[in-house]
């Protein structure tokens, strides 16, 4: 990531933007895991794949950046269908098997992207400039503003959808208790399919934003996966507001780490946060209703 040392107010603002994006990154993972109990370790690779798709469209087909968003959204929404069919066939222990299979999928996608796009670092430069808020001396790029707005918009959209639509309520019921949902007449299979579709669309949305703000290379996905897992463990499933809060905390922590110990140690932050979370919550992701 291209963020170097900033003064404190700047850190807070960029941590805030980054954190909102992290929530968006985790949203798809959390939705798929919540409804189907499948761990998708290839989550980050799928985001990076979407970024590359946007990159190719923008660079070689001269598609404007904003148009890459709906294209990636649809493409990834469709691409999760085979993943759904693949994971549906797995047997017990289901969670562990999904972990191993998607670990393999991550490896496969990494290498395919290596073949297709080479190991070079890329940046999707949408040509937006920076601006300075006079008086405060803060400099923003329009990229950050777009990142923040779209992330918050998507997160709020999912939150409202889950709480105020019939489908959303059925999804939430499935997240909390599959058996009870089944008994009360919810078709858990189609809920799973919908979760994968929606999760894929969220991944597709995150992709171009990722490529616009961070350097793109075939192995970049691992970190996004880690972030998605951290936030899901932190928040528990189906709790969008907690996800957002976790995203902000993590974003601020990373920004602060860059300022205090330098950007080389930033990579340690998410790994250490995951280990600490697991140390204090060894049973992992909770399914409790929002307290």
């Amino acid at each position: 990531m291209s963020i170097t040392a900033f003064p404190w107010p700047q850190i807070i603002v960029s941590g805030f933007a980054l954190g909102s994006f992290y929530a968006l990154v985790a949203l798809g993972f959390s939705l798929i895991f919540g409804v189907t109990r499948a761990f998708n370790l290839a989550h980050g690779e799928m985001i990076v794949l979407a970024s590359y798709l946007a990159f190719v469209l923008w660079k070689f087909c001269q598609v404007p950046f904003y148009l890459t968003l709906p294209v990636c959204l649809l493409a990834l929404g469709l691409l999760t269908l085979p993943l759904y069919l693949l994971l549906r066939r797995l047997k017990e222990p289901y969670a562990l098997n999904t972990l191993v299979v998607t670990f393999g999928l991550a490896l496969l996608l990494q290498n395919l992207m290596l073949v297709l796009f080479s190991a070079d670092y890329r940046l999707l430069n949408s040509g937006l400039s920076s601006f300075t808020i006079p008086g405060l001396g803060l400099t923003f790029s329009w990229n950050q503003v777009v990142l923040l707005l779209l992330s918050l918009l998507a997160t709020a959209g999912v939150h409202l959808g889950l709480h105020h639509t019939f489908l959303g309520k059925a999804l939430r019921a499935t997240i909390q208790d599959q058996e009870a949902a089944q008994i009360s007449g919810i078709n858990v299979k189609s809920m799973s399919l919908i979760a994968f579709g929606l999760g894929g669309m969220l991944i597709g949305l995150a992709g171009p934003l990722y490529g616009q703000n961070m350097y793109l290379y075939p192995l970049a996905g691992a970190e996004a996966t880690l972030i998605a897992i951290i936030l899901t463990i932190f928040a528990g499933v189906g709790r969008i507001r907690a996800l957002l809060l976790g995203g902000w905390l993590l974003g601020l922590m990373e920004s602060a780490a860059i300022l205090t110990v330098g950007s080389k140690w930033r990579e340690l932050v998410s790994a250490a946060v995951l280990l600490i979370l697991l140390y204090f919550r060894p049973q992992g992701i909770s399914f409790r209703k929002p307290g």
Binding site: L41, A95, L226, L274
Partner: peptide
Amino acid sequence: GVYLGLASLA
């Protein structure tokens, strides 16, 4: 299980 796998990854 899964969480040991995740921890080992990190």
